[in-house]
Amino acid sequence: MTIIRLGYVAMSEHVKNASPSQTMTFAQFSKIADRDAAIRKLERIAASNIHNCLRLLRHNAANDIAFFRLSSRLIPLANHPELKDWNFIRPLKESLDNIKEFLMEHPDMRVDFHPDHFVLLNTPDKETLQVSIKTLRMHEMLLKSMGIDTEHRCVLHVGGGYNDHEQALEQFIHNWGLISPTLQKMIMLENDDTTFTLSEGLYLCEKLGIPLVFDYHHFMVHHHEHESLENDWDRIIKTWNQSQLPPKMHISSPRSERDFRAHADYVDSGQLVQFLDSIKGSVPRLDCMIEAKKKDEALFALIRDLEQYPGIEKIDGGSFYIK
C-alpha cells in the first residue's frame, strides 16, 4: 500500500484573478523615466504575485492539497543584468513573511520550484552557466525568505544535447563541481521528452547523489528500447534515499495521439492507476505533481474519477491509498 499525494502547478482554475506570474518587460521598465518609480512598480507587481501565491496556498489548504509548485516568475526582472543593484528581498519581506507564517502553520505542505528551461547546468558556455547559477541563487533566496528548507526544491532538466549526449552528460558532471554545495542541495533532475532519457538522468543522479523526479509522460514519449520501469523503478527510488522528502514524480496525459508530447487538460485516470498498480508498496508515500492544463480542476477531476477503482481508497480531497 502506498499513499499518493497530488499537487498541481502554480495557477488555479478556481481562484480567480490570482496569477502569481504577472510580469513587466524590460522594455516597459525602460519607458518609465524615473528609475526609482519603475522599481517601485516592479515591487508592486512582485508583491501582488506573492499575495496571489498565498491565496492559492490557502485555497489548497481548504481543499486538502498539500503539494504545490510555486511560480518561478514571482519576481519580474529579478535576474536582469540592468537591475543588479535591486535588492528585491528587502521591500518584499512582509509579503514573503506572510507565506512563511502560512507554511509554518501547515508543516505538511510541500512546495517547490521548476525553474525555466534556460537554466542549463550542462552548458559549455561560461556566461550561460553563470546566468543559470544566478537564477538558482534567486530561487534559493526566495525559499529561505519563505522559511522553506532548500533541500531538493528545484526540479531541472539535464540540459542541451549539443549533438553529443555523452559529452553533454560529462559536461554536466564538470559544471556540477563549479556549483556551490548549497545550490547542489536544492536540485532534483527530471527525465525529459526530447533529449535525455530516464537512464541518462539516472546516470547523473546516481553518480552525483541527486534525486530523480520521474516524469511518466516524458518516459512514454521518449525512452530507449532497453529502458523499462520494471528494471529502473528501484533505481529511481534509491536516488531519494538521502533526502528528507518522499519521492516525487510528474504525471500528465498526452493531448492526443497526433500531439502526444503536449499535455492534455486532464489526467487519464486509467493510465495512472495502471502505473500505480505496478509500483504500489515500493514506497510508503509518493507525491505526484499534475502537469495538466486545467491545473487544480484536473486534480479535483482525477480524485473524483479514482473513486471508481476498487484498489483506491480516498483519504481526503488531495490524497488516496493505492492498495
Rank of each mutant, 00 (worst) to 15 (best):
Lys293Tyr: 08
Pro284Asp: 10
Asn191Met: 06
Lys31Ile: 00
Arg73Gln: 05
Asn231Glu: 14
Gly7Pro: 13
His218Ile: 07
Val158Trp: 02
Met138Thr: 14
Ser180Glu: 15
Glu313Ala: 13
Ile45Arg: 06
Ile237Gly: 05
Lys31Trp: 00
Ala37Arg: 15
Ser228Arg: 11
Gly311Tyr: 11
Ser48Cys: 10
Ala66Tyr: 11
Thr182Ile: 05
Ala27Val: 10
Val283Tyr: 03
Asp232His: 12
Glu225Tyr: 10
Leu202Lys: 06
Ile322Leu: 12
Val111Thr: 09
Asp97Ala: 11
Leu208Ala: 09
Gly311His: 14
Ile99Phe: 02
Leu286Val: 07
Pro107Asp: 07
Asp193Leu: 09
Met146Val: 05
Lys185Tyr: 03
Pro284Phe: 01
Leu204Cys: 07
Met1Glu: 00
Arg90Gln: 15
Ser132Thr: 05
Gly7Ser: 06
Arg58Ala: 09
Pro115Phe: 02
Leu96Cys: 05
His139Asp: 00
Arg73Asp: 08
Ile251Gln: 09
Leu74Tyr: 03
Asn60Leu: 08
Trp86Val: 10
Arg35Pro: 13
Gln28Ser: 12
Lys84Asp: 09
Arg261Ile: 14
Ala37Ser: 14
Ile187His: 12
Asp192Arg: 02
Lys84His: 08
Ala264Asp: 15
Arg304Glu: 15
Pro211Phe: 01
His165Ala: 05
Phe219Ile: 07
Val213Pro: 01
Lys323Asp: 12
Thr25Tyr: 04
Pro181Asn: 11
Pro254Tyr: 07
Asn79Thr: 14
Glu166Tyr: 12
Val273Asn: 09
Gln28Thr: 08
Asn191Thr: 03
Asn79Phe: 01
Leu183Asp: 09
Ala47Ser: 13
Val119Thr: 10
Phe26Asn: 02
Gly311Ala: 10
Lys294Phe: 11
Val111Glu: 02
Pro76Ile: 02
Ile39Lys: 15
Arg35Glu: 14
Asp149His: 07
Ala10Leu: 04
Asn52Gly: 08
Phe196Met: 04
Leu178Pro: 12
Lys134Cys: 10
Asp305Thr: 05
Asp234Ser: 14
Leu120Glu: 07
Asp193Glu: 15
Cys53Trp: 02
Glu190Gly: 04
Gly311Ile: 06
Ala47Asp: 09
Pro76Gly: 03
His114Arg: 02
Thr197Gly: 08
Asn175Cys: 11
Gln171Ile: 06
Glu200Lys: 10
Arg90Gly: 03
Phe172Thr: 01
Glu307Gly: 05
Lys238Gly: 00
Thr25Ala: 01
Gln274Phe: 08
Lys41Gly: 00
Met249Val: 02
Asp192Thr: 03
Phe113Ala: 01
Leu202Tyr: 06
Leu83Arg: 04
Asn122Val: 06
Glu166His: 12
Ala292Cys: 13
Ser282His: 13
His14Val: 10
Ile89Gln: 06
Arg73Ser: 03
Glu43Trp: 00
His152Pro: 02
Lys16Thr: 13
Tyr321Asp: 05
Arg235His: 12
Leu302Trp: 05
Gln308His: 13
Leu189Met: 10
Ser180Gln: 13
Phe196Ile: 01
Val119Met: 02
Glu101Ala: 12
Leu229Val: 11
Tyr266Val: 15
Ser252Tyr: 06
Thr239Gln: 04
Asn98Leu: 02
Ser282Trp: 00
Met249Cys: 14
Arg261Lys: 15
Ile312Trp: 09
Glu200Ile: 04
Ile290Ala: 04
Asp125Cys: 07
Glu230Ala: 14
Ile65Ala: 10
Ile303Pro: 11
Asp268Gln: 10
